[in-house]
Amino acid sequence: MNVRILGRTSRNSRGDGRKADPIETVLRLAVLLSGGTAPTLAWRYLAEGGDPALTAAADAAERGADVGAVLRAAGDSWHGLAAIWSVAVAAGAPLSDALRSVVGALRETAEVSADVRVALAEPAATARLLGWLPLVGIPLGGLLGFDPVGTLLADPFGRGCLALGLILMATAYVWMRRLSRRAQPPRVTPGLEAELWAVALSAGVSVDRARGVIDDLGIDPTGRAEVRDTLELATRAGVPAAELLRGDAWIARYRARTDGRVAAARLATRLLVPLGVCTLPAFLLIAVVPAALAVLRSTALP
């Protein structure tokens, strides 16, 4: 297994230096460490692919610096691996076991994010397409034998229609963009804090020690109340808290996927409001009114 993984990494080093996938990196790192490879050497093997984040992590490992801090600085996509690595090192958990236990969670998190992006893509793309509808009406009017460009630019009433139509188009664009942003999921990894607690407690550290390690990472505190309730339940029932916490993490990811799909469905409906209030009147002002004005003036001529 090690030979195949290292061989593939070496081929990447002779390739185009593509960016590494964090989930694939976690899995490879777990396999290398479980095979007896030293952490410093494992990071160096993975860095042969040319990814800047892994190169920085390998350099930090060789210097004895905080690899987790380096990965956190490399971007949002590496935050999950960075947090897991930091907690496992600080709690003294076996690195390979910790990475193996969360690779499925990271994969599910990526799937949740992908599902939400796909669900939001259709209503957002439809809104962008319909947002250009008023300008599409100008060449359409020309094909019907009218002169919408001349009416919009030369006629005072036409210039007023053009200005008001463009203002409505800009308003619709800003309005729809804000609605799309509000529908985006929060930039946090659902269930990450529960997974980190499970890693720390599985290493046998106390609750106070685990809390100190996780607080040092600056994780978003949205899931802190759920973690506290789970720890209290485990204490009252006299059962290990790690499995309960992993269950909480799975539920958080399930809720994130459901909330994302609901937000996409609501977005498709809410986008109809700016389309009806702004885009349709803009189409009438820019495309229909100049054509009607041209017809009226042509019939009014002796």
Rank of each mutant, 00 (worst) to 15 (best):
N2Y: 03
R4E: 14
S13W: 04
G15P: 00
G17S: 13
R18S: 15
D21R: 08
L27A: 15
R28I: 01
S34L: 01
G36F: 04
G36V: 00
T37V: 11
P39N: 15
L41D: 15
L41C: 11
A42D: 00
W43D: 02
D51M: 01
D51Q: 02
D51I: 00
A57E: 02
A58V: 00
A58G: 02
A60D: 02
A60H: 02
A61L: 00
G64Q: 04
A65N: 04
L71C: 11
A74K: 04
D76K: 10
S77K: 12
H79R: 15
L81G: 13
A82G: 07
A83E: 05
W85I: 04
S86N: 07
S86D: 12
V87K: 08
A88V: 05
A91M: 05
G92F: 05
A93I: 01
P94C: 13
L95Y: 12
D97C: 04
L99W: 10
V103H: 12
V103C: 05
G104V: 03
G104K: 05
G104A: 11
L106T: 03
L106W: 10
T109L: 07
E111I: 02
V112L: 09
V116L: 05
R117A: 15
E122G: 10
E122R: 12
R128Y: 11
L130T: 09
V136T: 04
G137N: 00
G141R: 06
G142K: 07
F146I: 02
D147N: 13
P148V: 08
T151H: 07
A154D: 11
P156I: 11
C161V: 04
A163P: 01
L164P: 03
L164Y: 00
G165T: 01
G165M: 06
M169S: 14
A170K: 02
T171N: 12
T171F: 05
Y173C: 13
A183C: 08
P186L: 08
V188D: 05
T189C: 12
T189L: 09
L192V: 06
W197A: 07
A198P: 00
V199D: 01
L201M: 09
A203E: 00
G204H: 08
S206R: 06
D208R: 13
A210M: 09
V213N: 08
I214Q: 10
I214Y: 03
I214V: 07
I219L: 15
I219P: 08
I219D: 10
P221K: 10
G223N: 08
V227S: 12
V227D: 04
R228Y: 09
R228T: 13
E232Q: 14
A234L: 06
P240Y: 06
A242V: 03
G247P: 02
A252P: 00
R261T: 11
A265C: 01
R270V: 04
P274T: 01
L275D: 07
C278K: 03
T279Q: 10
A282K: 07
I286C: 11
V289I: 14
P290A: 07
A294V: 04
V295S: 14
L296F: 11
L296Q: 11
L296T: 09
A300K: 04
P302Y: 11
